[in-house]
Nucleic acid binder design. Structure first.
Lengths: 177, 177
DNA sequence: CGGATATTGACATCATGATGTCAATTTTGG
DNA sequence: CCAAAATTGACATCATGATGTCAATATCCG
């Protein structure tokens, strides 16, 4: 039997819980897909629409991607999809000629509200009978993990490899083909 | 202000914690990618290799996909990648002529062990100073959510739409293009 | 035994996430 | 003001997840 690498008890728990975490994440995203499907939304679109809804002042695409902790490029693509679906519009940004502001349309607002209305009974059913204290602890631990795992605690920036230099080939991803 | 759909306090917590859950999931998968990159692994390949390692008796691809809670088709693709990388082999299954058994190779074992060895200090660092009780509760809640969100509690099967009949177009997924 | 049904591997398509790159624009530093 | 650096939108590529489909095979049931 190979000697296990030394892990603290806490690290053992994190390790063993990871797989369940992945499965729950997939299951929730899947449930979101099903809930919002007939509204023309997917889980991802719902998420991004939510980021726009929550933003108190109109944001640029890059700003929203920072809020979401996602990469700029994919957020841009989905926002363009939502613009095509007339749930968002891009309005001129007086502060930046190239970076328009993302604004919710009436249809976008209605769709988001409808999705959240569908989500309510789902969330009620899923948490039915679960201990409130446990859920609060769960919330606290998740938030703590998010903070600790953030690329640089305190900096919300997306480190985008300033590619120009081509300093390293970065052959990280295997390309078996 | 639009009237919020009625949610129990527990459902409110689940709703508000979802975004952090997604972010933590992405961050962990990303950390896994970085940890295992130079071993020729990705987060997904690591996961699937782990499923093979944990299986006491050799499984078929479909069996492994059930273990992983993932869909058969994508697991098959990744397993073929791992076979190409010589980390897995497909051996004849006396019970089923078309469904070979997935077996770990020496290289696969070594790669998996190396990945777990890299993961240990990472897990130690991430959980450094976190309360053990909180982590245990976290583990319990995640497991409970996984059970509750499972397609059918108790049935491990993947409901695959028996397509033949073409009874309904199932126009769930939006196709904006 | 023999047909109906389910399982399994394989292939295809689309949505998404990660990453690299580039040009246009803004910001910064002198 | 001007040049260097950073930001931003856009485009491209690859890995992955979800889904549909099909043929081969296995299992079930009469």
């Amino acid at each position: 039997m190979p000697p296990k690498p030394a892990r603290t008890p806490a690290a053992e728990i994190l390790t063993s819980v990871t797989m369940d975490l992945f499965r729950v994440d997939h299951l929730i995203l899947n449930a979101g897909d099903r809930l919002a499907a007939h509204l023309g939304l997917t889980g991802t679109r719902w998420q991004i629409l939510g980021a726009v809804v929550r933003s108190t002042t109109p944001q640029t695409v890059a700003g929203l991607s920072r809020d979401l902790g996602s990469n700029r490029q994919n957020v841009q693509r989905v926002i363009h999809d939502l613009v095509r679906l007339e749930m968002l519009t891009l309005e001129p940004n007086p502060k930046h000629r190239r970076a328009p502001l993302v604004v919710l349309t009436g249809k976008g607002r209605q769709t988001y509200d409808a999705a959240m209305k569908l989500q309510a009974p789902w969330a009620n059913a899923v948490t039915q009978g679960m201990g409130l204290d446990d859920l609060l602890t769960f919330q606290r631990v998740i938030a703590e993990l998010r903070t600790r795992l953030a690329p640089r605690p305190g900096l919300t920036e997306n480190i985008e490899v300033r590619g120009k230099g081509k300093t390293g080939p970065a052959t990280a991803t295997t390309n078996p083909g």
